[in-house]
Design a binder for these strands. Structure first.
Lengths: 210, 210
DNA sequence: TTTTGAGTTAAACGTATGTTTCAAACAGTT
DNA sequence: AACTGTTTGAAACATACGTTTAACTCAAAA
């Protein structure tokens, strides 16, 4: 075995480059060059570029998924029959995200970018993958949100959920550019935590509208 | 001149295909084939693929831009010194969008997709283009929002504005897929107008949060 | 020691892409 | 009718891409 596993070297490089330039715009040659690995390694270890993209996605998804699940399990065991508020639910999700992307903040951006891609690429492989892998967590969170917003019609709740997802996906995936604008226009720096601190109240108020 | 101008035939085809498959995934050959036009026509009339993408963008941007400007002008002449509410502002923008994309609803999706792309493609050409072209309208709308939300700190207002933008960009650009999910999961069809009808209250409540 | 098999390497393959070329067709003007 | 500038057409070009191949490395098993 080399200093660091070839597979994770590829994943690390791919993650950074996907976040910077997108997926179609990032070539395997660029990835393997940054990873200091032979070009053929991607196809050897992952099978194809598509599979690599999925693997990059999975590296977030799986721990994030488990994190939310277990923290919800713990909470429900300690506080059974309590109804979580929207803020509570968002905090659970945000905390899981933070812990998964800890130490490397651009990972959040690429996760969100993948999410956006998964949604608006019609026949894309990512969407199917996400849908099968994520379904049970999605349902569980959706059920919690339903309990927190009992007055909402199911269809409108569905849309509002995706409005929330959109805010998060858009702003967090282009966080770097937006922070640059803030620094230029307002002469102020924003940490990621501050942005999330701005985001959650916005989302909560939005889903509770009217 | 042919039946329809070659330039607009290309723009029409590019618009549809970009909306379906994204930009990098759509080749000039696919575009020119659908437009029933020679491959070289794109480079002859637009210069490059990048320039074509910008041209597709500009075909929305320019009329949309003018529409918002003039309708705001008219309103300010008729009702000087009135402070528009957030809902009013959003309605102005939404009405301008509707009138620009009238008759062809998928244009909204590609517009939003381009917007998202412009934001999270760091060094992308779209971003610069948008920034220079849009700046004055952006400032004007921002000033109106500032008057409608006097209690908000400028930086937080900036972020909330982009949270709104994110909701709109994300949901409207993946509208087709989301409507398919709604139809599958809830056995209901949603028109674009209904979705916008759901969206605006969400945004208004979000920006007014706390 | 030999064998095995996973991992790596350099090179090549086939293909799809954006772009360019240059001759032909065309429309408008003189 | 001849000329002129613009637009189209078929073909080729150069390149970048994802992928495959086959030779090679090298540690662990037999």
């Amino acid at each position: 075995m080399a200093q660091v596993d070839t597979v994770t070297r590829i994943l690390d490089a791919a993650e950074e480059l996907f976040a910077e330039h997108g997926f179609a715009e990032t070539s395997l040659r660029t990835i393997t060059a940054r990873a200091d690995v032979n070009l053929a390694a991607v196809n050897y270890h992952f099978g194809s570029k598509k599979a690599l993209i999925q693997a990059v996605f999975a590296r977030f998804l799986t721990p994030f998924y488990k994190m939310v699940e277990t923290s919800l399990d713990v909470h429900e065991k300690n506080h059974p029959d309590t109804i979580l508020s929207i803020e509570d639910i968002l905090r659970f999700v945000a905390r899981a995200m933070a812990s998964v992307t800890e130490g490397d903040r651009s990972r959040l951006a690429i996760f969100m970018r993948l999410l956006g891609l998964a949604y608006n690429q019609g026949q894309g492989h990512l969407r199917k993958y996400l849908q099968t892998e994520y379904r049970s967590l999605f349902r569980r969170v959706m059920a919690l949100i339903a309990k927190a917003t009992p007055d909402l019609q199911p269809v409108e709740r569905f849309w509002r959920f995706h409005f929330m997802l959109g805010s998060a996906a858009f702003t967090l995936s282009s966080m770097e550019n937006l922070r640059a604008i803030v620094e230029h226009d307002f002469d102020t720096k924003c940490t990621e935590e501050e942005v999330v601190g701005y985001l959650l109240p916005f989302l909560a108020a939005g889903i509770r509208a009217k």
